[in-house]
């Protein structure tokens, strides 16, 4: 823990000198400002499609794509979009990319499309994407926005993967579809049900809070 902290302070020190800025943008989303665990954004998909690790990865990939592409496009257009209609323009841009992803997933795997359900289309209203567009892409260069989008997207995927793995292993005794628990293991069916999503995320946040409080005390 302390070693990675050391790394992070070094990174932000470098970035203040104008070096490694891209890496810093990337790492910030992945860990320090993790969209789910730290900023508590994008909770709906984080809870809804995290009942298995596979779903979590697919959802994470789709969101990362939309986030990166919309960040890049919005950053490119940041000097052309009038301030008054910016939110509406952002949503239109995001909706276009989401429609694309929706059709791509349908073409690649219809089963996956079914198991993710309406939540692919609902990427449009994922608060992470709009908040990155508003808070970062509309103010920064294309390169930095790209790294920020990638970082935040990977951070989101990482969080989803954590929740998804825990729920799948305990709830159905499998990991990525392969059986990992012995046959004698009694499955906690509740974990794949909606209530399990709430409990898993609550426990992960408790652990995060514990470390945060420890760091403040130290």
């Amino acid at each position: 823990m302390s070693l990675t902290d050391q790394n992070k302070t070094n990174k932000s020190f470098f970035s203040s000198l104008g070096e490694h800025q891209g890496t810093d943008d990337f790492l910030r989303g992945l860990w320090r400002d993790n969209p789910v665990f730290v900023q508590v954004l994008g909770m709906c998909p984080a809870l809804a499609v995290s009942n298995s690790a596979m779903n979590a990865i697919a959802m994470g990939l789709a969101t990362t794509f939309v986030l990166t592409m919309s960040n890049v496009l919005i950053s490119l257009l940041r000097n052309f979009i009038p301030k008054e209609v910016r939110i509406a323009s952002y949503i239109l841009i995001i909706a276009t990319f989401v429609s694309m992803v929706d059709y791509v997933i349908q073409a690649v795997s219809i089963d996956l499309h079914k198991s993710l359900g309406a939540f692919i289309a609902l990427i449009v209203v994922n608060c992470i994407i709009l908040s990155r567009a508003e808070a970062f892409a509309s103010k920064n260069t294309v390169g930095r926005s790209l790294m920020d989008g990638l970082g935040m997207g990977m951070g989101f995927m990482f969080a989803l993967f954590c929740i998804g793995s825990i729920r799948e292993i305990i709830g159905s005794g499998t990991f990525l579809g392969l059986q990992v628990m012995p046959d004698a293991f009694e499955k906690w069916v509740i974990m794949v049900l909606p209530a399990g999503g709430f409990f898993t995320l609550a426990c992960l946040l408790l652990i995060f809070n514990h470390f945060k409080l420890k760091k403040i005390k130290a």
């Binding site: 209530a195 709430f198 609550a202």
Partner: peptide
Amino acid sequence: TALVLLVGG
């Protein structure tokens, strides 16, 4: 948030 999520569960 953690508490709200627990109650939500």
